[in-house]
Design a protein around this nucleic acid. Sequence first.
DNA 1: TTATAATGTGAGCTTTTACTCGCATCACGC
DNA 2: GCGTGATGCGAGTAAAAGCTCACATTATAA
Lengths: 212, 212
Amino acid sequence: MNQRLTPRKQPRQKRSQETCAIILEAAARILESDGLGGLTTNRVAEIAGVSVGSLYQYFPSKEAILAEMIRGLRRSLLLDCEAAVETVRGRPLSDAVDVMVRASLRHHLVRPGLARVLERAEEELPLEEDLKAIKGELMTLVTGVLEERDVANAGQAAFDLIALSHGLASAAIAGGETDLENLFQRLRRAALGYLGLQSDRTGSDAGGVSAA
Amino acid sequence: MNQRLTPRKQPRQKRSQETCAIILEAAARILESDGLGGLTTNRVAEIAGVSVGSLYQYFPSKEAILAEMIRGLRRSLLLDCEAAVETVRGRPLSDAVDVMVRASLRHHLVRPGLARVLERAEEELPLEEDLKAIKGELMTLVTGVLEERDVANAGQAAFDLIALSHGLASAAIAGGETDLENLFQRLRRAALGYLGLQSDRTGSDAGGVSAA
DNA sequence: TTATAATGTGAGCTTTTACTCGCATCACGC
DNA sequence: GCGTGATGCGAGTAAAAGCTCACATTATAA
């Protein structure tokens, strides 16, 4: 009953590695155009230009394809955030918030439709250990950043900041917003506000929200 | 090709109204235990103790069942929020934020699993006009509350507050949190922080987050 | 009671879809 | 060249799921 979500076999030759990549890209395009409901193994194979047999050589189930895509997405987010944090070693909290918010925002903006669908898919899949581990690493990363800046309750703050940023970014991008800078300012305001820091630049045009 | 998501016919007698309710409740239970993937028309009918034929008499498709459940959920949230806003007529912004946050939190806590699944379903369904209207009314309500309290950019602030509250509440409840009061304090902090107001009560035990 | 409309039934039709398997083709070491 | 394992193929299978329809039962009104 329990189906594996990991690849059936590792591709050994270049040819087969390309086949895997082509299959994943085809699945991505289908998800972007038709959503989760449009994703069928036959169709993925067709769009990819390979046979179903080849597909099942590397992915033991439809869910395995989704799981692999989600792994890739999560890994890239984690790497981006780690790199971003590196650039603000020793700098104050607001700078750290800035780069992390920017990193996660960039991440939402590459193939936004795909990211959304994969997040939904992730909730329906029985999430795997390695995926939980990646999520945990992100939490750890953010918690560390906050702890180093003497934020109390860093673990909970990390959780909350990730969740609220995610909620705001998702909603905005789903709503078709494209003004990256405006969205960034709002995310920044929310995050700094939660942390009890006043967002600066309140004098500028994109400025204050509260009472005039 | 386009399938209707509205009930096929209105139930005229008491008996059939009960049948409708029983069907919706059965669907809810299935969603809670097995998620979207477990929802099949045959199974809904079986759990409800009615025949598939009866089901299709009132719901022209599986999606129509989901749409009806979503409508119910949204309507109840809107009504709760409207009632909450009524109670703080003429009171300051922080009080208004309080009651609205509490209302939406309560709303997440009744059958939390069901609410989550329905939200996912809503994204996959081609969302209907009447659902968009309900969402719009909520936006209008919150925008009005903010405008009356002289919040600049009230429309955008309403959007952002709804989105970030939703993100935080969803994540927390999905993570199994049950301490309603603690969660409320964090939501409140996030919302007031975004609005540029300091969260008071910073002296208490659940208090300040920023640097010690 | 009886006519009529509303409601309820469930076997089964139809379509879709995940997945298999026997065979063909290709790459690479000898 | 040639043998062996890796890769690729796609018609076909079996199961699942959405939905219909001819018929049975129940309620309402005359």
